[in-house]
Amino acid sequence: MTTLTDDTLPVTPRAIRDEMIVFVVMALLLAAVPFTGVYPFFVMQALCFALLACAFNLLVGYGGLLSFGHAMFLGTAGYCSAHALKVWALPPELGILVGIAAAFVLSLITGFISIRRQGIYFSMITLALSQLLYFIYLQAPFTHGEDGIQGIPQGRMFGIFDLSKPTVLYYVVLVGFLAGFLLIFRIINSPFGEVLKAIRENEPRAISLGYRTDQYKFLAFVLSGTLAGFAGALKVFVAQNASLTDVHWSMSGEVVLMTLVGGLGTIFGPVVGAFVIIAMQQYLAGFGQWVTVIQGSIFVVCVLTFRRGVIGEIAHYFRRSL
């Protein structure tokens, strides 16, 4: 079966060194943003989505499991963090932890349910589960339904960093993103990541070699969901609200689109994809529903002609894994 990713590229120590170089360049570029004229809010938003897309990509690009419900982790962590910050008045670091813990628990439950089926059934199940959560959040009192949780205090991280200052917030979000990214990078290049890729390529063979593939897929799901929750918790500080949009199926679709545009199963693709899609939404905000039409068209074009994505094409051209 033809898989979702470009498998012609060998992973060698050389490639990992290249990837580290690209990572350092990316980190330096992002760290320089406040000194340029770029609107920091836009970059922060894109960074949150980039982390979300990277977490999503861990599951689809390396585990071969296309989740169509990743918004549920983003939204759940967002609601729980927001609630912890606003109602319980916890400091930011604990607020983030609450969000991550919530996403972790949710991914344990949803992973246990959805991992029982493969392929498209898995996609449909994750989509249905996220819709279930959407309706629960719509009715639950603590989410404030259609209004969402508004006016969340940003507070002081570790009692020192004043997150209401855009530059401080920017660097906190950037550190969070880079930490999450490095963790994903480490997971992908670990023995666990290798087994995951083996399962994606040929599950029956992996089973015959003695791997309990369901456990590997479950772990990948939990890691991906928890990291997506981290992105959701960070996003609360940037957007200062938590609303139903973050749990809606269209958000799950956007995450898929970001990863597809950047390149499924590439390390840097989701980051590029997230910046492209967020920038597009920013510039086309005045066009109303045409944004949806354009997003749909990008889906169609990518699937028909551009399946490797931006980074995937570059990697293929230079015969490097990126």
Partner: peptide, 28 residues
């Protein structure tokens, strides 16, 4: 028809894109 032989998931993604286009046009 161009998706024959590719992973099932591409069909899902393509038709999701088509759904977004059709719904977006009517919403406009």
């Amino acid at each position: 028809q161009w998706l024959t032989g590719l992973d099932h998931l591409y069909g899902l993604l393509l038709t999701f894109g088509i759904a977004l286009i059709v719904q977006g046009v009517f919403q406009n």
